[in-house]
Design a protein around this nucleic acid. Structure first.
Lengths: 156, 156
DNA sequence: GCTGAAAGTGTGTTAAC
DNA sequence: GTTAACACACTTTCAGC
């Protein structure tokens, strides 16, 4: 994949689109000093090039009954490292796992889990431990309060 | 805030909108078996009620020069707990911090950081330690590979 | 209440410049 | 990149369920 060059207009557009992808091209155009047509053409190009990977709706977790957030560190025993693909697949398939990272550090994998409440999280862990027995440890950090929730990237 | 009741149509819409908020109402209508008008009306209501909090563009981190992801556990000494608001404000204001959670567990706060490379992350940590001296420890997990990246919630 | 269809409005798209 | 003509999507209205 070639790295597309972005000018200041693109950067302004991307900054704005990361905050609100629903707004009209005319609004964006007025803000960055461009015509609406130019804005749409640029947006189309950014989408086609894959700079804009998707536009998604962000929902209120409380309304959806997922008021509890947990950060789980997953550790596989040294002897069971072959089970890693299996664990990754499990995380990928589980809807309650919103995000997951394969890391180096204290744990092997870190997962961001959204649950209705603690019993539900307990049940999830039990299921995980049962279905991936090679998993040796789950260390959980309970989120008291989410401070920042976004997928936005800093724009240089 | 009253919890809005959602029917099956709403749930289908939300599921679809979490994956792609750019698609046309007519497309959604055909998929869930409703007229385009009804879909638009429902979407408007879901936005007004705050069920849909935002629609945002998701960018490619590689293209934006943020290929490195890190998970930082931040610990404040027992004596310096009054510095917590200051630390929270710092994280909120720092663009490289994409997500942050106030947690109970090994650390006091967990931050998801996006950096161009390790030197940049080092510089960020140095700046943080300098500007919030009450911070006693930063434990970093380096992300080898992101497995899942989304803000989508499971729809019951 | 909510839906579906048609009319009306505004936006996204395309072509010429 | 801008402007203008065009096509299409969204909005509103209204009748009906």
């Amino acid at each position: 994949m070639s790295l597309p060059e972005l000018d200041d207009f693109d950067r302004h557009l991307l900054t704005r689109m990361q905050a609100d992808a629903h707004c009209k091209a005319e609004t964006l155009a007025a803000e960055i000093g461009l015509s609406a047509s130019a804005v749409q053409r640029r947006l189309k190009r950014l989408r086609e090039r894959g700079v804009i990977q998707a536009e998604v709706a962000v929902l209120d977790p409380a309304v959806m009954g997922r008021g509890l957030t947990l950060i789980a560190g997953l550790t596989i025993g040294r002897d069971n490292y072959a089970a890693l693909p299996r664990l990754r697949a499990w995380l990928a398939a589980e809807p309650a796992v919103q995000q997951a990272w394969y890391v180096t550090g204290e744990a092997d994998l870190v997962a961001l889990v959204l649950a209705p409440d603690m019993p539900a999280y307990d049940a999830l862990c039990a299921r995980l431990m049962a279905e991936v027995p090679q998993l040796s440890r789950i260390t959980t950090q309970v989120v008291i309060e989410p401070l920042k929730r976004s997928l936005a990237l800093p724009i240089a």
